[in-house]
């Protein structure tokens, strides 16, 4: 028995994990695909009715769907760019001795590990137009008070992007900093001997050497930021008047507020395809850049 187990350890050790994933993910994905071609409101009496591509066609004709797509894209583009640039800058900035460095590293960890719903609640309070701190600050610098989350304009979405940037820039920073510390000294020494200035050191040595780290950080952020849910649900639940509704929130409300399971399934199938495609592109770049995960 032991000999048999030892011989097949490669398969036996991974089998439970693969089966678990199969049951918990692959089967539901198939079920989703099936539902996306049906019309169903989770009724026990009325079974799902096959309508072909009906759900998809309805979606493509809906302004609310396309608005959610656009908002998701805006959210991802701004948050990802800001987090990468600021994260890199912050990592360079703290890569020097300063008083309280250990405490600083602890503090930078906090937004990343703090419960997103709680983070959302605090920002909800700070953004509150009449009693929040944000407008105290805005007025202090002599600007007109803002509405933040209480408006149907782009302002509410951007306010949430700011929360995401506050929350996750430190993670990019921590990753880049880990990469920076691990960089070898030799290329810098020889470049200095060759008379390179600090800008050249950054663009010619630091950036290329850090690019694998940056790529991993960006990929991890991208796959999370595209499905941002917690802070939006905690603050606005997609409102006011859908102004902060992204694809994930739309899929959620289509399922659990409107009980249009077929349509929701179609959204999630499309969402799934897009996320996998984007991840595939990243993995291809990774292969090209020979980054090892």
């Amino acid at each position: 028995m032991t000999a048999w187990i030892d011989k097949h350890i490669r398969v036996l050790f991974i089998l439970p994990c693969v089966l678990f994933i199969l049951v918990m993910i692959i089967v539901p994905l198939g079920y989703n695909l099936y539902l996306s071609f049906h019309s169903w409101s989770m009724s026990a009496v009325v079974p799902p009715r096959f309508i072909g591509f009906g759900n998809y066609l309805t979606l493509f004709g809906e302004k609310r769907f396309w608005d959610a797509v656009v908002r998701t894209v805006i959210f991802v583009l701004i948050a990802l760019t800001a987090q990468t640039v600021l994260g890199l800058a912050l990592a360079m900035l703290i890569n020097r001795p300063f008083r309280g460095k250990r405490l600083a590293q602890t503090l930078f960890l906090l937004p990343v590990v703090a419960t997103p719903v709680a983070v959302g609640m605090v920002w909800k309070l700070m953004y509150e137009p009449t009693i929040g701190f944000a407008n105290v600050l805005v007025k202090a610098v002599g600007l007109k008070p803002m509405k933040f989350l209480a408006t149907t304009g782009l302002e509410s979405l951007l306010s949430l992007v700011a929360v995401d940037i506050w929350e996750w820039t430190p993670m990019v920073m921590l990753m880049v900093y880990a990469g920076l510390v691990a960089l070898p000294d030799t290329p810098y020494e020889s470049a200095r001997i060759d008379g390179a200035n600090s800008r050249q050191l950054f663009t010619r040595i630091t950036l290329p050497l850090l690019s694998p780290t940056l790529l991993v950080a960006m990929m991890l952020r991208l796959i999370d930021v595209i499905k941002t849910f917690d802070i939006i649900y905690a603050t606005t639940q997609g409102g006011p008047n859908f102004a902060t509704e992204n694809i994930n929130i739309l899929a959620y409300s289509t399922t659990f507020s409107y009980f249009e399971f077929g349509k929701a399934a179609a959204i999630t199938v499309l969402f799934f395809i897009v996320v996998i495609a984007i991840s595939g592109i990243f993995l291809a770049i990774r292969k090209h850049a020979e980054v090892d995960f």
Binding site: Y31, N32, I226
Partner: peptide, 22 residues
């Protein structure tokens, strides 16, 4: 197989949450 696990991290949770619910 390691890619399969990575995939689990990438797939939006909402895609399997709805089937689980029903």
């Amino acid at each position: 197989l390691s890619m399969l696990i990575l995939l689990v991290r990438m797939i939006p949770g909402i895609t399997f949450l709805m089937p689980w619910f029903s």
